[in-house]
């Protein structure tokens, strides 16, 4: 058996650290955890918001969503939510969709649609807050 060749001054650990086959290390996995932890309190707040808004009129709903604290929490929710959705659906597509081209197109669609929906939602909150 031939000896493994080393033709780099960097240690093997240094070369793989933060990279791996995906070239982004554990970033995707870690961001799923970060967003899920952030979404836990935001989800509970959203359930509370639903209780407040159940049966509310247009004016009451507008006042609630446009209130400074609520608007900021809505924007935070939208940001973390669509980041989590895009990355979560990406995981599902990467597991099930073959071949490569089809998978790539699915990922384009998911990332694009998530970004679009997040922007529409965030713009709506801002418009409600500032008009």
């Amino acid at each position: 058996m031939s000896k493994p060749e080393v033709n780099s001054l960097r240690s093997p650990l240094g070369r793989v650290r933060g990279l791996g086959s995906a070239k982004s290390g554990t970033h995707h996995w870690w961001m799923m955890r970060v967003t899920s932890v952030a979404l836990l309190p935001l989800f509970l707040w959203f359930v509370y918001a639903c209780f407040v808004l159940a049966g509310a009129s247009y004016a009451e709903t507008k006042a609630f969503v446009g209130a400074p604290v609520n608007a900021v929490l809505f924007l935070l929710l939208i940001g973390f939510l669509f980041h989590h959705i895009a990355n979560g659906l990406q995981e599902v597509v990467e597991d099930y969709v073959r071949p490569e081209l089809k998978r790539m197109l699915w990922l384009f669609a998911i990332k694009g649609l998530s970004g679009l929906l997040a922007m529409i939602a965030a713009f709506s909150v801002l418009r409600v807050a500032f008009t």
Partner: peptide, 15 residues
């Protein structure tokens, strides 16, 4: 994720 479409619809309609 699909259900959030209605959430976005709700916010956009409110605006």
């Amino acid at each position: 994720a699909v259900g959030t479409l209605v959430f976005v619809w709700w916010l956009a309609a409110l605006a």
